[in-house]
C-alpha cells in the first residue's frame, strides 16, 4: 500500500468510532443547547446563567478545582519522586497508592460520607476518645467550610493517583546521566528537582494537569454524596436540569459551558508548560 496513505487508513477505524460516539452526540447536544424547539437561540444559556444557583455552582466548582488540583499536583510530584527513588517494594507501594483509581467516584464519596456523617467513624472516634459528648452533624448548612474540606479531601484521596501514575512514568523516562551531570556540576537535590526533573517532566505534567483539571470541572458524584444540595456544582446542575426539571436544553447548555471552561484551561496549561521551540524533551 502507498506509504503516504497508510497512516490515514490505520487511524480510520478510531476516527469513525470517535465520529459516531463522540462527535455526533456532541452535535446533537449542541443542537439541543442552541434551540428551544424552533430555530437557533441563546435562550437556554440566558436561562441557566441568570438562575440564582448558577454563579454559586460556578464559583464552587472553580474554588474546588483551585483548592484540590495544585495540592494534588504537589502531592503527586512528591509521591512520584519517592516511588522513583525506591529500589525494593516500588511496585507494591505504587499498587497500594493507586487503589483509589479502581473505586468509582460515587463509592469514594460514600466511603468519605461514612467517615464524616453524624454516626460515622470520625464522630465515634472523637466521642470514644472523649473529645466530644455527643455526635455532631459535621456536614450541615451551618458548617460550609467542613463540607468543602470533606469534599476536597475525598477528591484528593480519590484522584491523586491518576496524576501519580503519569508522573511516575514520566520521571522514569528521564535518563540518570542528567542527574549525575547536574550533581557533578553542583546542583543540590532541590536544584536537581527544579532544574532537571520539572523541566524534563513538562510533557507528563501537562498531560496529568489537563486530565486532572478536566475531571475537576466534571466533579459530581463525590459532591453529591458528601454535600448534596449544600454544595451545588456545575455538573450537579446539569443533572438536576436533565432529570429533575426534565429540561434537556438547559442541561445541554450547562454541559457546553463546562466544556468551554475545560477547553480554556487546557489551552492555558498547554501554553504554560510548552517546550521551548527547538528543545527536544
Amino acid at each position: 500500500m502507498n506509504p503516504r496513505i497508510l497512516p490515514y487508513v490505520l487511524i480510520l477505524p478510531v476516527t469513525l468510532f470517535l465520529c459516531l460516539f463522540f462527535l455526533y452526540p456532541f452535535v446533537l447536544v449542541s443542537q439541543q443547547a442552541f434551540s428551544t424547539g424552533s430555530g437557533f437561540t441563546l435562550d437556554n444559556f440566558k436561562d441557566v446563567m441568570s438562575h440564582w444557583k448558577f454563579p454559586i455552582s460556578l464559583k464552587n466548582t472553580l474554588y474546588l478545582a483551585a483548592a484540590v488540583v495544585p495540592f494534588q499536583l504537589a502531592l503527586a510530584l512528591l509521591m512520584a519522586t519517592m516511588v522513583s527513588k525506591m529500589k525494593k517494594g516500588r511496585d507494591l507501594v505504587l499498587y497500594v497508592w493507586t487503589i483509589p483509581l479502581g473505586i468509582s467516584d460515587l463509592a469514594a464519596g460514600i466511603i468519605w460520607l461514612a467517615i464524616f456523617e453524624q454516626s460515622g467513624f470520625l464522630n465515634s472516634m472523637m466521642s470514644g476518645l472523649g473529645f466530644i459528648d455527643r455526635p455532631m452533624n459535621l456536614l450541615s448548612y451551618q458548617t460550609p467550610a467542613l463540607v468543602f474540606l470533606a469534599i476536597a479531601l475525598a477528591e484528593i484521596w480519590r484522584a491523586t493517583a491518576i496524576m501519580l501514575v503519569i508522573l511516575v512514568a514520566g520521571i522514569g523516562l528521564i535518563p540518570k546521566e542528567y542527574y549525575e551531570a547536574a550533581e557533578v556540576f553542583g546542583a543540590s537535590p532541590w536544584k536537581r528537582f527544579t532544574r532537571i526533573t520539572l523541566p524534563l517532566l513538562r510533557p507528563s505534567l501537562s498531560t496529568a494537569l489537563v486530565l486532572r483539571v478536566i475531571l475537576a470541572f466534571e466533579v459530581f458524584a463525590v459532591v453529591q454524596a458528601l454535600g448534596g444540595t449544600l454544595f451545588p456544582v456545575l455538573m450537579g446542575e446539569t443533572y438536576k436540569y436533565q432529570f429533575e426539571l426534565l429540561d434537556g436544553g438547559s442541561a445541554a447548555a450547562i454541559a457546553l459551558i463546562i466544556l468551554l471552561i475545560s477547553i480554556a484551561f487546557t489551552l492555558l496549561i498547554l501554553r504554560a508548560l510548552r517546550v521551548p521551540k527547538g528543545a527536544t524533551i
Binding site: 535518563p175 549525575e180 551531570a181 547536574a182 557533578v184 532537571i196 524534563l200 521551548p276 528543545a279
Partner: peptide
C-alpha cells in the same frame, strides 16, 4: 568536573 559518555547535554 566531568564529561559523560552520552554527553548528558541537558535537552531543555
Amino acid at each position: 568536573s566531568m564529561v559523560f559518555q552520552n554527553y548528558a547535554v541537558f535537552p531543555h
